[in-house]
């Protein structure tokens, strides 16, 4: 071995490599450009546009939004859909994933559960409209057995059902992957130490799953918060399911006020950010390290 030459005599390539920069790093460029062009630029464009209202001072759009109940109520309407839908999806995914994890033919069930992901919201909405509508098989059966019609579409319930159907596969897959990442020997160790199934879940699985569930809650929430097609197709877009994205859509394409639409989109973004920040703060109280055991 020869001694290393003086620091300044090392080639640039070697010095860059010490910071993990090499030719392969260039492969990041297309992705970075893509993000900049389709996400960063439109975001800042909309941000500045929202401060250039058609009339009034620079805050006029925001003042208008927060003074008109027809507009600011959309926040509540959206949260009333997004929060329960997220919680239901994540909470149901836990027992299902716990069961599926132990199955030998996991792949078949996983495939079945994931099918709704491939269908898209519009197809699911169409299906629900047909099956659960006044002339659908569900209501016909209810009528036949004498219960009478139940209104399940064009209202809050319809949108909620659609959000659960389309959101569940996603949350389920995430929960399943977090769960299978937990070393099975931890549960076995707990069992040999006398912990019954319920205690193993409470003291071992749940704490180790918590960090994954927090991420899962965030992703699932962001997904349901931007609900649009199902709120229009399955809900009552002028009433209970007048969500914030509908307000933005109307501002942009019915009133042709791009500045106002941008302001609504910004408000929407900040509400999402607030909830996500809240969840991630809560994550600070749970264990966040490795979920394996021993030296990794």
């Amino acid at each position: 071995m020869t001694d290393l030459p003086h620091e300044e005599r090392r080639p640039l390539r070697v010095r860059l490599a010490l910071y993990d920069l090499d030719a392969v790093t260039l492969l990041l460029v297309p992705a970075a450009l893509f993000v900049a062009a389709l996400f960063v630029y439109p975001f800042f464009y909309g941000f500045f546009l929202s401060f250039q209202p058609k009339a009034g001072d620079w805050l006029a759009n925001y003042r208008k939004f927060f003074s008109d109940p027809f507009l600011y109520d959309t926040i509540e309407a959206t949260l009333r859909l997004a929060i329960p839908a997220t919680l239901i999806n994540v909470l149901i995914s836990i027992p299902v994933a716990l069961r599926v994890r132990l199955m030998t033919r996991r792949r078949i069930l996983t495939t079945l559960l994931v099918v709704p992901l491939t269908l898209g919201t519009v197809l699911i909405a169409e299906g629900l409209l047909t099956y659960l509508g006044p002339q659908g098989w569900f209501n016909r059966i209810l009528s036949l057995v004498g219960i009478g019609q139940v209104r399940l579409v064009h209202n809050y319930t319809g949108v909620m059902l659609s959000l659960i159907l389309s959101g569940f596969p996603f949350t389920f897959l995430l929960t399943l992957s977090h769960l299978t990442g937990i070393d099975p020997s931890l549960e076995q160790a707990a069992a040999t130490l006398g912990a019954k199934a319920r205690a193993r879940f409470r003291y071992i699985l749940m704490p180790l799953l918590a960090q994954g569930l927090a991420i899962n809650l965030c992703l699932s929430f962001v997904q349901t918060f931007s609900v649009f097609p199902s709120a229009v197709l399955l809900g009552s877009p002028a009433g209970a399911t007048r969500v914030i994205s509908i307000a933005a859509y109307q501002a942009a394409y019915e009133q042709y006020d791009a500045s106002m639409a941008s302001a609504i989109a910004m408000i929407m973004g900040f509400v999402q950010l607030f909830v996500v920040a809240l969840i991630l703060t809560g994550r600070g109280f749970v264990y966040r390290g490795a979920v394996g055991s021993g030296k990794g």
């Binding site: 003291y203 264990y287 394996g292």
Partner: peptide
């Protein structure tokens, strides 16, 4: 009592 090959200590 069981001692596992990877110790299986509860990491949290």
């Amino acid at each position: 009592g069981m001692v596992f090959q990877n110790y299986a200590l509860f990491p949290h």
